[in-house]
Nucleic acid binder design. Structure first.
Lengths: 316, 316
DNA sequence: CTATGATTATACAAAGATTATACATTATTC
DNA sequence: GAATAATGTATAATCTTTGTATAATCATAG
C-alpha cells in the first residue's frame, strides 16, 4: 500500500506523455531543462528522459504561473525559492492503485541495484530505486526480499573490507528514514491488540525492530515504537500505565540479554501482566540465554516473529 | 528564514507584469523612476527591473492618488512623507496559495498541541497537528518555532518528573521520522558545496544534526548525513575518498569532545583538507574545550550554525 | 528497412527590456 | 496670455529572453 510521496518519485512518463499531460511541447520542456536546469528527469538505459508524478506536478505549477503572465525564468526562480522553504506541489495522481504493480524485475535485482547506489553514496539513485521497489512489491516482500538482502550485502562487504563503514551508515540512515516514514504513514486502524516495541541501541537492530513494527502495524495491531535506550524502570512504568497486550524487546549484544531477562521478570510481576516477546542476534547464537527470560522467543527472523505473534493473537 | 514581510520584498515581477497588475504603462513606470527616483527595483543579471510585492503595493497607492486627481509629483511627495512616518501600504499577495498557508495560529500554539498529543501518546493526533504545522510555516520556522519548543517542553517536563521517559522516546522517534522524511524528500539540487554531517549517538542530538542537515540541504548544499557512531578512522577514510568541502560533527557528552578533537586534527592533516565545523551542548557548557579543536565552532544554536556556514561559503 | 519518437546542437524570429531623446498635452507661474 | 514646467507617450537602436524549427543521430517495434 504505497503512500503518495513514495510512488510519486517513480520515473514513469516519457517526454511525450508529459507533454500531453501538461500541454507543453517536448522541445520547450527540453529548452527549460537546458536553459534553467529545470527538472533533471531520470534517464533510462536508452538516455530517454523519464518523468515522475512529482516532476509533472512541478511542470503544472510552472505552467500555471506562466499562464498567469509570469515569465518562465521568474516562475522557475519563484519555484526554487519556494522549494527552499520546503514547498512541495500538490501531486495529482492518476492511478493510485493500492496494489503492487509488478515490474517483472525480481527483488534480488532491486537489492543489487540499491547496493550499487549505496556503494556510490548516490542518494538520488537510491531514492529512485527504492520508490520503484516500493511500488512493485508488497510490504513483507519489500522488507524480506529487497531491503534485508541489501543490508546483508552491505554488512558482508563491510566485513570483507570492501566498503567503508561510512557507507554502511549512509545506507542504514537512508533505510531507517524510509522505514520510519512507512511506519508513520501506515493507516492506524488499531483494530487489534496494542503492542509496545523497543530495541537495543544499534542501527542494524533498530532496523529490525522497525520492520517488525511496520509488519505488525500493517496487520492492524496498534503499535507504539519506542526505539532504544529506555531505562528499565521507565519501561515498566510505561507498560503499567498504557496497558499493552504485549511488550517486545530485541537486542543484539551479550550485555543487553541481561536487560531483557530483568525486563521480562519485572513485567511478568505486574498485575494484569502483558505478554512478553523477545528476539535478537544474541539469542540465536547463544540459545541457552533464552532459558533466563520469562516470555516468548519470537524466532530467528522477522517473518517468524510475525508468525509467532499472529499465533498468540489469533482471529482477525 | 523568510518572514511574511521578507517574502513580500522578493523581486519577482518584470515591468510588464507590474504593468498588467497596476494598469500603468511600462514606459510611465520607467519615467517615474527616472524623473522622481520613485522605486529602485532590483536589477537582475540582464539589467531587467524586477519588482517585489511591496513595490507593486506602492505603485497601486500612487495610482489611486493620481486617479483621484493628485499630480504624480505631489503624490510621490505625499508617499515619501508618509513612509518617513512609518507608513506601509497594504500588500496584496496574489500567489499565497503556493506559499505556506498561514492559519493565524501562532507556532507556540502548535507546539503546545503537539506536546499534549505526545503526552497522551496519541500518534494519530500528533500526525495531524504536524501536517497542519508543516503546511502553515516555512521549514526554518517549523523547526525553530514549533519542533524545538515542543522538544524543549518535553525535556523540561521529563526533568520535572511530569512525564515518562517512554513518552520522550515516543516523541523523539516520531519527530526523527518526520525529519528524516523531509530530509530525504527535499529536492537534491546539489548546486553548492558538499558537506558531510555526523553526530553523537544520542537521540536529541541526532535531531539537532538532522535539522542542520535539512536546513543546509534546503539551501542547496549537497549533504551526506551519516548519523552516529562512526569510527574515527572510517570517517577520515570516507572524507578522504569523498572529498567534501566541509565536515561537521556534533556531540553532547564530555567523552565525545575528545573524539571531536582527534577528528579535527586527523582531518586537518589530510591533503586538500576540508573545513571542519563542530558544535553541541558540551561546547556550550565548557567553552574551554573549544581550544583543543582545530576548526570552526558553529555557535550555540542551529540557526547560528547555518549562519556560520553561510558565511564560510558566501555566494549562491 | 521503415516509421516513429527521442537526443543534442544550432538557429532564428517574435516578444520584451533597456537607454536616450523627442514630442505633444496639460498645469502653473509670471 | 505667454513662458515654463510637468507629465504621459512615442521612437530608435540595441540586447535578452523564449518558443519553435531544423538537422543529424540513435533507439525500438513491426
Amino acid at each position: 500500500m504505497p503512500t503518495a510521496s513514495e510512488t510519486t518519485a517513480i520515473p514513469r512518463y516519457t517526454i511525450k506523455n508529459v507533454s500531453k499531460k501538461t500541454g507543453i511541447l517536448p522541445v520547450t520542456i527540453r529548452a527549460w531543462e537546458r536553459r534553467y536546469e529545470f527538472l533533471s528527469p531520470h534517464r533510462s538505459e536508452n538516455r530517454y528522459r523519464m518523468y515522475s508524478d512529482s516532476d509533472v506536478a512541478l511542470l503544472m505549477w510552472i505552467k500555471n504561473r506562466v499562464d498567469q503572465g509570469v515569465s518562465i525564468s521568474t516562475a522557475i526562480n519563484e519555484l526554487h525559492t519556494l522549494q527552499n522553504n520546503g514547498f512541495i506541489p500538490e501531486i495529482k495522481q492518476e492511478y493510485q492503485s493500492a496494489y503492487p504493480k509488478p515490474t517483472g524485475i525480481p527483488p534480488a535485482e532491486y537489492a543489487a541495484r540499491l547496493y550499487r547506489a549505496f556503494k556510490k553514496s548516490n542518494e538520488i539513485e537510491a531514492a529512485e530505486i527504492f520508490a520503484e521497489a516500493r511500488a512493485a512489491f508488497t510490504l513483507p516482500a519489500l522488507l524480506a526480499n529487497v531491503l534485508i538482502p541489501t543490508l546483508t550485502q552491505i554488512g558482508e562487504a563491510w566485513y570483507r573490507g570492501e566498503i567503508d563503514v561510512a557507507i554502511e551508515h549512509f545506507a542504514s540512515k537512508f533505510i531507517i528514514g524510509k522505514l520510519m516514514h512507512i511506519f508513520q504513514t501506515l493507516p492506524l486502524r488499531a483494530k487489534r491488540e496494542f503492542i509496545i516495541i523497543g530495541c537495543a541501541p544499534d542501527e542494524f537492530h533498530e532496523i529490525g525492530s522497525l520492520m517488525l513494527a511496520i509488519l505488525l502495524r500493517s496487520q492492524g495491531y496498534r503499535i507504539d515504537y519506542l526505539g532504544a535506550d529506555i531505562p528499565l524502570d521507565d519501561l515498566v512504568d510505561f507498560v503499567e500505565s498504557e496497558k499493552p497486550a504485549m511488550v517486545i524487546l530485541s537486542v543484539t549484544m551479550q550485555g543487553a540479554a541481561k536487560y531483557v531477562e530483568i525486563a521480562s521478570q519485572k513485567i511478568a510481576a505486574l498485575k494484569k501482566a502483558p505478554l512478553f516477546g523477545y528476539g535478537g542476534a544474541i539469542f540465536i547464537s547463544q540459545p541457552k540465554l533464552r532459558l533466563q527470560v520469562k516470555g516468548t522467543y519470537l524466532g530467528d527472523s522477522i517473518n517468524s516473529a510475525v508468525e509467532t505473534i499472529e499465533k498468540l493473537f489469533p482471529g482477525k
